[in-house]
């Protein structure tokens, strides 16, 4: 069976102006229990690659520059 993509609004938002992943920071990617954050090859900034969030907040709490915001996933809101 061929695969299709279903769009989804992701709960974790990264402020690219504040994110210092391009300087080598990987804190949010490291601490996420679900391992859903990645550093973008295009922008060198962190982003939510997989919509598999427990909205538990280590990414936001541990981010050294306050670049990460965790929102409640739309289906729960």
């Amino acid at each position: 069976m061929p695969l299709a993509l279903s769009p989804t609004a992701v709960p974790v938002v990264v402020d690219e102006a504040k994110c210092i992943a391009d300087k080598g920071c990987t804190v949010c990617v490291d601490v996420c229990p679900l391992d859903v954050l990645r550093i973008s090859d295009l922008t060198s900034k962190a982003y939510m690659k997989f919509d598999e969030c427990w909205y538990c907040m280590p990414c936001e709490t541990d981010c050294p520059t306050g670049a990460v915001t965790v929102n409640i996933p739309y289906l729960l809101r």
Partner: peptide, 8 residues
């Protein structure tokens, strides 16, 4: 499976 710093 995740990272001991923030797992479980």
């Amino acid at each position: 499976k995740a990272n001991v710093k923030r797992s479980g």
